[in-house]
Design a protein around this nucleic acid. Sequence first.
DNA 1: GTCTATAGCGGGATAGAC
DNA 2: GTCTATCCCGCTATAGAC
Lengths: 200, 200
Amino acid sequence: MSPRPKNPGRTDATRARLLDAAVTTFAERGFHGSTIRDIAGGAGLSTAALYVHYRTKEEVLYQISRDGHEETLALVRAAIASGGTPGERLERLFRDFTRYHAQAHTTARVINYELAGLEASHRAQVHAIRRRIEAEVQDLVRQGVATGEFDVTEPALTTTALLSLGIDIARWYREGGNWTPDELAERYAKLALRLVGASG
Amino acid sequence: MSPRPKNPGRTDATRARLLDAAVTTFAERGFHGSTIRDIAGGAGLSTAALYVHYRTKEEVLYQISRDGHEETLALVRAAIASGGTPGERLERLFRDFTRYHAQAHTTARVINYELAGLEASHRAQVHAIRRRIEAEVQDLVRQGVATGEFDVTEPALTTTALLSLGIDIARWYREGGNWTPDELAERYAKLALRLVGASG
DNA sequence: GTCTATAGCGGGATAGAC
DNA sequence: GTCTATCCCGCTATAGAC
């Protein structure tokens, strides 16, 4: 993906600063509205230095997008693997999913709304992860239907609605608003149970 | 907003074509990813001709955004004014709100996700309309709580969730998918009732 | 109101020194 | 690995003819 450095430690820290600055400006102005001067400058570097770490601006976006999606998939899988009834696992999944989208709302904004900035092959890889996330959740919904715990006639559509609630947080959430990520997670987990007809 | 023409009929048609082309490219590539060549070319005009109708690219976005938001506000108000119990009105509101976001998903994508492209004063005006939309819906939710028809402890948060479900359709909806706008509207209206604890 | 042509600037990316 | 300096392209917007 990027040139291999001789001094990983320092290089890794620099890359982290670049990704951080990129997330900030991508979230604020979008991929095309952000310049490499914004990114490099935000990390305290010249534009030329950026190219030691990433080949193009698009590659920076890809790194952010891939990392974020993999983290989300891991989070979803962990909740599903955690045991209990489908309702308990859905509640846990949704609590974590919601908290992530609130806490990391700038990152979440980039990975959910800047997909169009990705080059075709990168976008395809990211979409593959998204499909796996959706498949995991849909599977859980179907399990709940099978056990009779959920009252859902169309699992695919209900899954879309569930994910919508979480993803859209990245659009509207602001620090210093009415709810902390934890408070929101608590309440949204209950709303998720209502959506699947398992009011707990 | 734009220069007054001598020949309104022909000018209006040209502007409509420009707005149409702009919506298409803004929805696909975002405001900053779209060029005035995309917009003008999509309407069959040269870039110079665009400036007869709009002073800047941003003004094109503003026109789209303002029109779209006003249409949405009108739709929300019409449903609320239509009479019946809060539950009946919420169901109607949500059916219309959902259908709009599916049917006009390209426009909806632009007006909901390209707000950052607006100049400060324009953005402020649009945000004012958004707040009115939210206020109308929240008011309806509170009415349902007052009559005991809805089971909601936090009307503000529930309103956010309701709007989220509708708005996020603009992100994921595609023509030729699993649901027509009407089918989706039907099902989402039922989900809205579940969210407010008024399963009908 | 529309065109062709172009000004003028800001963007992504690179060259070459340290 | 980072810098300064710069290339060169594509973008927004305008000039001036029809």
